[in-house]
Computed example of a mutant assay.
Amino acid sequence: MNLSNLADLDAFVAVAQAHSFRGAAALRGVSASALSEALRRLEAQLGVRLLNRTTRSVTPTEAGQRLLERLLPALGEIAGALDVVNSFRTSPKGTLRLNVPSVVARQILPSIAMRFMAAYPEITLDVTMSDTFIDVLAAGFDAGIRYEERIERDMIAVPIGPRRQRFVLAGAPTYFDRYGVPTHPKDLLTHAGIRHRFQSGVVAPWEFECGNKTVRISPEGPLIASVVELEVEAAVAGLGLIYMFEEYLQPLIKSGALVPVLADWWQSFSGPFLYYPSRTHMPAPLRAFVDFLKEEN
């Protein structure tokens, strides 16, 4: 097998895992047409169709699925073997692909990433922002960042960023002048809430904790959105109360644009973790990032 054959097989794996030529192209940094041509060559060489293509999806045929199952461990071993050479370099080189939730991408990762890139100038950090939990390896990422309750037990998890975070409930002074200040989470049923919709489509209830008591509230209000900036602006404009990661609201609370309420009931939880599957050969860029995080902690 020559190198062009290997590249075509790698293209097949990328498309089969992403179920999309465009998605695979975005992850690999190549054009969708280049991947399509690679698949055409591979199928012509093998004399069998590997992928079923429709306008909405791309799925492996039975032959394609069998090939995919055999290729994944083999390509993993090849990547690991090549990366052994990388470990002999003075400084690791390559691309580190991370899948990161929006709050981490915006509020936590930037300062960490700047220090890491300065320490490892030959590593390219490729970050995709997503709030849904995915199989990072199958999707073509080296690692992901998520919160503890979303990490599978067979994954290795390394702390990244603050070890405790919390949601903060706040509203504009004009809102409280007009509608009063709630003294208990149940009071929120008569207040306007600005709600967040996750990528999954779920609009989660607001959860409050005090001692051994937990209260879940789903307030009605003028806005449900999946854009944090829009939600925050609505709260500052006095349209309703907002319950969100403290990192988003703290500057506005400090400036007086928002006023915190029900602090005794704010939900607190452990900070995020970098997670990745256990494997014999860890890519050098990922190994460097893990070591960097452990040194910082």
Rank of each mutant, 00 (worst) to 15 (best):
N2H: 05
S4M: 09
S4V: 09
D8S: 12
D10S: 14
A16Y: 00
S20E: 04
A24K: 05
R28I: 00
A32P: 11
S33P: 02
E43T: 09
G47P: 00
V48C: 04
R49S: 07
T54K: 04
A63C: 05
Q65W: 08
E77I: 11
D83S: 15
V85W: 05
T90K: 08
P92Y: 06
G94H: 07
L109W: 14
F116D: 01
Y120V: 06
I123T: 11
I134Y: 05
R146N: 12
E148C: 02
E149V: 10
R153G: 08
M155S: 13
I156P: 07
V158P: 00
P159E: 13
I160L: 14
R163F: 02
L169F: 08
L169M: 03
R178M: 13
P182K: 06
P182Q: 03
K186E: 15
T190D: 11
I194Y: 01
A204R: 13
E207W: 09
G211N: 04
S226R: 14
V227A: 03
V227M: 01
E231T: 15
V232C: 09
G240C: 00
G240I: 02
G240V: 01
L241V: 10
Y243N: 14
F245Y: 09
E246W: 10
L258T: 06
V259Q: 15
V261C: 15
L262D: 04
S268T: 13
F269R: 09
G271W: 01
Y276V: 06
R279N: 04
P285A: 08
F289Q: 06
V290N: 08
